[in-house]
């Protein structure tokens, strides 16, 4: 399996039609995980034994960089106002352009697997992503299970690529 993870992905536009109504301005509740409190996201990831580090994306919004197996990945914060009050998260891993990592392969993944979306970007990078709304916050237990879905589906993706790109 030769897919190589890209270090930095370009942040995509991902707002809703009425962004003014979407930011989360309510303080994060006690013991909850919220996109408007980035530390709660990082702490929940560390609690799930992920090597997570809070950083900033190119527009100054929060992001989390995670190193580890099978792939390093990023978590982007969306729907922020002045880099605060963010309303949603996007988990993303981006692979360098590769023969065989085609739109047809992305559709095959999407037809047979839950949670993670596969797509080929204009620059040829193959991307796996998962978006989640965070307004109002979620419990640590629920967020831990979301992390578990992301991690276990990344593991499935590694197996899928190994099988599908064999010999390519």
């Amino acid at each position: 399996m030769r897919l190589i993870v890209m270090s930095v992905a370009a942040v995509m536009l991902g707002g809703r039609a009425l962004p003014a109504a979407a930011q989360d301005r309510v303080p994060c509740g006690k013991d909850l995980v919220c996109a408007n409190a980035p530390d709660t996201v990082v702490q929940a990831m560390i609690a799930a034994r992920l090597q997570a580090k809070l950083a900033k994306d190119e527009s100054g919004d929060p992001m989390v960089e995670v190193t580890g197996e099978p792939y390093r990945f990023d978590v982007y914060f969306y729907g922020c106002e002045k880099s605060r009050n963010c309303d949603s998260l996007r988990f993303e891993v981006s692979f360098a352009r590769e023969d065989g990592a085609t739109m047809a392969l992305a559709n095959k993944w999407n037809a047979g697997h839950r949670f993670l979306t596969a797509a080929v970007k204009d620059n040829g990078n193959f991307v796996l992503s998962y978006d989640i709304g965070m307004i109002g916050g979620t419990t640590k237990r629920n967020f831990a299970d979301t992390l578990d879905w992301w991690s276990s589906m990344l593991g499935e993706a590694a197996d899928f690529f190994a099988k599908e790109l064999k010999g390519k």
Binding site: R16, L32, G137, T138, T139, N142, T146
Partner: peptide, 27 residues
């Protein structure tokens, strides 16, 4: 053409978070 959106239901979420999830699906 099929369209999908998956979420975990383990542990609880705030009602406003659930409403937000439906809103993402609808919008």
């Amino acid at each position: 053409l099929s369209t999908w959106m998956d979420i975990s239901t383990i542990g609880k979420v705030s009602f406003s978070n659930f409403a937000d999830t439906i809103d993402w699906w609808q919008s």
